[in-house]
Amino acid sequence: MNNRFKLGNYSLYLMLLPGLALIVIFNYVPMAGLAIGFQQFNPTKGLFGSEYIGFENFKYVYSLDDTMTVLRNTVSIAVMKMIAGLIVPIVVALLLNEVGKAYFRKGVQTLIYLPHFLSWVILAGILMDVLSPSTGIVNQFLGLFGIKPIFFLGNPSWFQPVLVISDVWKEFGFNTIVYLAALTGINPNLYEAAQMDGAGRRKQTWYITLPGILPIIILLATLSLGNVLNAGFDQVFNMYSPVVYSTGDIIDTYVYRLGMINFQFGVATAVGLFKSVVSFVLISVSYMLAYRFANYRIF
């Protein structure tokens, strides 16, 4: 049946109205502020009085010695986090799905989502203890195998893995929730049919469960591309030190330090805009690719 020209469909546009109004007021109107990225922003002159300087703010950041190192660190940390942050929750969701006892499943689900609610300030303090080369439990454990104490937070080659692992540890339980919700959407008839055909658990997982949550996986993977230049300011800021700048310094921490004395609104806005544009391009490209080649609309 074709509803296209029925009056009833105007209600669809009406439904969009409140949401549109909200984003126009609270997102699109303030976006005029992006102009700051092209200004020598003077707080007392404001958005309309400040002098326009074209791409000077961008050039300034680009010209700094450490920009390339910082950009490389950011992408490398963010990409590792994206990949690990995608795979681990899927695996855990699938493993939880295999658990028969409801109380155990619910218990685990609840416990693994706990670290999400502790801030990085607190977790960083705890990690410093746990990873301490002198008293940390991790190094004591490694000592049992004759491994000399490692100063994880002060060693440039260990710092990135520590960031990635601790980030996954903090967030995987929370991210698992989406996949668990997606699992509920799979048609139970499919499993019954598969059992009739004699498919084992592994085959059912492979041919029914995974394809069933594939759209959500693709969706979350695409959306996570928006974070390709967000390596996690709070986490890094609370854990890094000049010793590990070579691998641990990221765009956000770098810009923060650059603006310590006089907060450079122009530079900060320019960097933010750059990050937004990169994210936008990546997300658009993956959206196009999925549509062109799989005829699938991610959103």
Partner: peptide
Amino acid sequence: MATKGSILMDLESKMITKIIL
């Protein structure tokens, strides 16, 4: 100082830390 001071501060803390280590 307002535009470059932070960079110098950063250089200094890196220098002191690294020499101590």
